[in-house]
């Protein structure tokens, strides 16, 4: 009997504190996204998206910066996706699940996922820029980001493959279908959602990254002529405008709005795909 009022008081207190927390989280998130998009989108126009930055970025647009961003991301995905998917396929389909190498590789990828991005920047600077003599370049930046998103690609692809029912593998083996054929026509198509979600999440993380790029792909705003040219990505552009360019605020807002919209599209697409995949899975089980 005595616990009844106390519980009611705890309930009321929790409710009040909880709604306050929800209000703070929603309000501040809305404030952030609203002010970036509100200030930024008025500046965004076709010419902003296609012209070169002028006067250290105070004027002009972000055309060349967008090209560099696309190139860095292409290098990153071009390396991380085949490597990561290949590794996940081996871990899931070829290696014995409880064997030592599998445990070691998965543990080491977990560790890799915990490395702060600035440390990837240090690593990329030494290995790609200096040892491999790529200099400050789009290639070096892309390779550094590839190392960073590799664990994400491996983990999601692995999860996708593990969710494929074993009947498919047994059926393929019973029909004497070779493992490569089974992979191409059965397992990878069945796990495609996992792969795509992993690639999208990796793309989102890579596009958001700044710290790993300032010492690898550099700050140059010219139109890159090859992958060995330095080129700044949108996130590096925002950083440079915020830190080093007095009067760059308006353009920084606009660049931030563009980056935020791009990431919104990528992340929402990944979430929708993952959601559909999950529903598909549960529908099949029930």
């Amino acid at each position: 009997m005595r616990s009844q009022p106390r519980s009611a008081a705890a309930d009321a207190l929790t409710r009040t504190a909880g709604w306050a927390a929800v209000f703070v989280v929603l309000a501040v998130s809305g404030w952030l996204v609203g002010s970036v998009l509100g200030h930024g989108l008025q500046e965004v126009s076709w010419s902003f998206l296609t012209s070169e930055p002028l006067d250290a970025g105070r004027n002009g647009g972000i055309g060349t910066v967008l090209v560099s961003t696309a190139l860095v991301l292409s290098v990153c995905l071009g390396i991380a996706v085949p490597l990561g998917v290949g590794a996940a396929v081996w871990l899931s389909e070829f290696a014995r699940p409880s064997s030592r190498p599998v445990a070691l590789i998965r543990r080491s990828l977990d560790l890799l996922a915990s490395v702060p991005s600035i440390v990837f920047g240090l690593f990329g600077m030494v290995v790609f820029c200096q040892e491999l003599r790529l200099g400050f370049s789009i290639a070096a930046g892309g390779l550094t980001l590839a190392c960073m998103i590799l664990p994400l690609v491996v983990q999601t692809t692995f999860a996708g493959l593990r969710s494929v029912p074993d009947e498919l593998r047994l059926g393929a083996a019973a029909l004497a279908i070779s493992r490569s054929t089974a992979l191409r026509h059965l397992l990878l198509p069945a796990a495609l959602h996992g792969v795509v979600v992993g690639v999208m999440l990796g793309l989102g993380r890579a596009a958001a990254e700044t710290a790993a790029l300032i010492f690898t792909s550099g700050y140059v705003t010219r139109m890159p002529e090859s992958l060995l040219d330095s080129g700044r990505t949108v996130s590096v552009h925002i950083y440079d405008l915020a830190m080093n360019v007095p009067g760059g605020e308006a353009r920084a807002y606009a660049s931030a709005a563009v980056l935020l919209c791009l990431l919104l599209i990528v992340n929402v697409a990944a979430a929708v795909l993952a959601d559909r995949w999950l529903r598909h899975q549960t529908a099949r089980v029930s």
Binding site: A87, W90, F94, A95, P101, I105, L109, L112
Partner: peptide, 30 residues
């Protein structure tokens, strides 16, 4: 068929080994 599979397995094992060694490589270089 077996040979095709064997080559694929080698390739994939290489990818897995490279991914696994990356962490070590980063720690070593830093």
């Amino acid at each position: 068929w077996l040979n095709g599979d064997r080559w694929l397995e080698r390739l994939l094992r290489l990818a897995a080994a490279m991914s696994g060694c990356l962490t070590l490589l980063i720690v070593a270089f830093v």
